[in-house]
Computed example of a mutant assay.
Amino acid sequence: MLPKDNKNRSTSPVCYLDEVDSSYSGIEPLSASEAVMSWRKKERRRLIDQRMATSFTTRSSRTDAIEQNLKRLLGDVRDKVISLYWPFRGEPDLRQSRTWIEKLGGRCSLPVVVMPSAPLVFRSWTSDTTLRKSAWGLVEPEASEKLNPDLILAPFVGMDQDGYRLGYGGGYFDRTLVELKKPAVVVGIGFEEQIIPTIYPQPHDVPMDWVLTETGVSKSPTQRFSGNLEEPG
């Protein structure tokens, strides 16, 4: 954020390098996309640090509220495939949701990174599934059945007011949502303090259908697909 003008503040002479030909200054100006990438990197770091600085007790309490809101959103999950996630860097830990989803007749999966810059695949996750730690430090099923999710929970680092998600910068979820052969409802999961005015969405960014935090569930203004979900009462 630029500092507010203060006439009483002593300053050095104003720099007009942005008005000088770059060949004279020796500094190449940032393109719009480069400026967004730079801003996102700093904002991502700020939001992760903020989340990690939150006490475990507070995160757990907020996560309990998130799980209750998830139950309201999902409703009848019989014969549905729900993609959960393995928590990372202080994300809401919803792993226990698998138990009640299975009891209600649903199936669960976890996303798997196949290779860099490739879409994710989703593999079945039950209490009997063999898990492994990937090269990226995430826990994922080793060789279970591939599934096509009906609903995907996408944890976010930041979420803007139009439903666009700021992740860790790898672009895996965006590539995956574009490549899915079967449309899936996508729910952004995070804490309310991670909601920001904008992430400056770019053409490759894919909006969420729903946004879910400890304070409630909201339909994204840019919702792509609602499936059979009804708005929670």
Rank of each mutant, 00 (worst) to 15 (best):
M1I: 12
N8C: 06
S10V: 13
C15Q: 11
L17Q: 09
D18C: 14
S22W: 04
S23L: 06
Y24N: 06
G26K: 03
K41D: 06
K41M: 08
R44P: 06
R45F: 13
L47T: 02
I48V: 09
Q50K: 12
R51F: 07
M52Y: 00
S61K: 15
I66D: 05
I66V: 15
E67G: 12
N69F: 05
L74C: 12
D76K: 12
D79H: 15
Y85L: 04
W86R: 02
P87K: 08
R89N: 07
R95Y: 08
R95S: 15
R95A: 13
R98Q: 15
C108G: 01
C108E: 00
S109M: 02
P111G: 02
V113F: 00
V114L: 11
M115F: 02
P116K: 14
S117C: 11
P119Q: 06
L120T: 11
V121S: 09
F122E: 08
F122W: 13
W125L: 14
T130Q: 14
L131I: 10
K133R: 13
A135S: 14
V139M: 09
V139A: 05
E140Q: 05
E140Y: 12
E140H: 13
E142M: 13
E145P: 03
K146G: 01
N148Y: 00
D150T: 10
I152T: 06
A154K: 02
F156N: 03
F156Q: 02
G158V: 13
G158F: 00
M159V: 05
Q161A: 15
D162T: 08
Y164F: 13
G167V: 09
Y168I: 14
G171Y: 07
F173A: 06
R175A: 04
V178P: 01
P183E: 03
P183F: 03
V186S: 02
G188H: 04
P197H: 10
P197T: 07
T198V: 13
I199H: 05
P201V: 11
P201A: 09
V211E: 06
L212F: 04
T213G: 10
T215N: 03
G216M: 02
V217N: 01
S218F: 08
S218C: 04
Q223H: 11
N228V: 13
E230Q: 15
E230W: 10
P232F: 09
G233V: 15
